[in-house]
Design a protein around this nucleic acid. Structure first.
Lengths: 144, 144
DNA sequence: CCTTGACATAAAGTTAGGTTTAGGTATTAA
DNA sequence: TTAATACCTAAACCTAACTTTATGTCAAGG
């Protein structure tokens, strides 16, 4: 049995966050003695689940939904799988988008590196795209 | 010369967003005739810059800083490069984190796929980590 | 003359996931 | 006895990038 302060230390999560999770209903079985929260193994397990699902990029409302399904047992495996499947597709798209972003940034870095060396941007502006270094041209093409 | 409605259509950006950008000072040279905003080529160029920098994942306050530097000329190439360099490193880290997230999600998908096939999670719980399929074991190890 | 539509403003609302504040209780140590 | 801790609550605040709302101006068309 742990107090909120102990759980906070064990998981390195602010007390305010634990209270917030409680208020949001993430510890359906949390007990109290004379008003003070007492976290038992079940509550600690619930917290581990929250942490893990947050790690996988789920929003809290999805975590909540997942917990509901999990307490309903084996009839909800499909729902749970679909939840992760959807999130997986979203993450794959996020990664793709960030890789495009990275191309832009690498181009920008090259651009200003050259501007610094030349002392001016003029020579870059006058450069035809097909005269760019091959690697840079690839970057350039990837977002134009 | 364009009205706000025309610009909104040309760029597919809500009118409210354009007004917001204006209020935030992103169109330092925007003219008005009898109270109505008139966007000229310069303002359109400014908007293109905003769009491009937002594409590269910069926050509006960084976009603002960049514009300030850009109007100061060649003496700020270094500042501008550093801005992109920093953002580049941040994006690389975001991608790494998402790839870890993806590993968790792929594991979860495998897990529930198997639970659906078995009709129960029990057999997975009893499975030793070194008895997992090699690909799944790799995923599992990557976040444990 | 009246309505429609495009423009304008200021201020409040939205979202998520908390954090901070103000005020109160209960136990314990000096 | 009083001071320090650790706990409690409700409600306000935070960030970013907008969006919505309420209200108003102005010109053209029927």
């Amino acid at each position: 049995m742990y107090t909120i302060g102990q759980v906070s230390q064990m998981f390195n999560i602010p007390i305010s966050t634990l209270r917030y999770y409680d208020k949001e209903g993430f510890f359906p079985n949390l007990k109290r003695s004379s008003g003070i929260r007492r976290f038992d193994e079940q509550d600690i397990e619930a917290l581990k689940v929250i942490e893990c699902l947050k790690e996988s990029g789920l929003e809290l409302k999805d975590v909540k939904q997942f917990i509901k399904w999990a307490t309903k047992g084996s009839s909800t495996y499909k729902n749970r799988k679909e939840l992760f499947e959807k999130r997986k597709i979203a993450v794959e798209q996020e990664i793709k988008k960030l890789q495009k972003t990275l191309n832009i940034l690498e181009y920008k870095c090259w651009y200003y590196d050259k501007a610094i060396k030349d002392g001016t941007e003029d020579r870059i502006y006058k450069m035809l795209p097909n005269k760019l270094p091959p690697k840079i041209q690839k970057l350039y093409d990837s977002f134009h």
